[in-house]
Amino acid sequence: MIEAIDLSKIFDGKTVLNNLNLKIEKGQIFCLLGANGAGKTTTINLFLGFIKADSGNAFINQLDVSKHPLETKKHLAYIPENLMLYPYLTGLENLEYFTGLARKKYSQNELHEFLLESGLQESYINKRISTYSKGMRQKVGIAVALAKDAKVLLLDEPTSGLDPKSGNEFAELLIKLSHQGIAVLMATHDLFRAKETGTHIGIMKEGYLVDTFPSENINHSELESLYINHIK
């Protein structure tokens, strides 16, 4: 579903991503850990096609991102660190707009359902985004992914700045989505959440993916010491 082959990116002569090879299958949640500047966001931007790779290829749903920039976006959903939506439109209207851009047509009722499924309180569905909290906006983002029928979900530190309850809800939602057969790539700083949510964990350092392992093989304190060791 999500695949990188020898993916590299150089900024101003500095290699920020070095020969990344990565494969995430349906139903997997892959958590990327690493310090600031380790290359997590660069990886996600490469999969989104926001930046061009200097060598190697990124695939979404077996399609090369650089060759099919618009086609691949039909299959993916993306939630940035701080998801912002149009403040003058309601949650429902924002959802309708973005799914419409992805050429999906839904009735108002169906859109309503998607928002409920993403865990948005019903009373907020028809309120303007300017009244939403960050967690509520993330839920609209999930609803976009659901409505788009996305095969791939790319997340860039989605839980930072969320209170623990919202973070928890978000994690549960992710697990639910992965069970529906979506491949998830999530960049995060949150070791605890990565262990709880992710099926696989990767650790990045200075542009290298230094380690990957399934999360069930490891407990919280082992993960922490492993992470600290790599980062040092």
Partner: peptide, 11 residues
């Protein structure tokens, strides 16, 4: 307002 990234992620 931050919607640009999401917009760019659309086809």
């Amino acid at each position: 307002q931050g919607t640009f990234k999401l917009l760019k992620a659309q086809p």
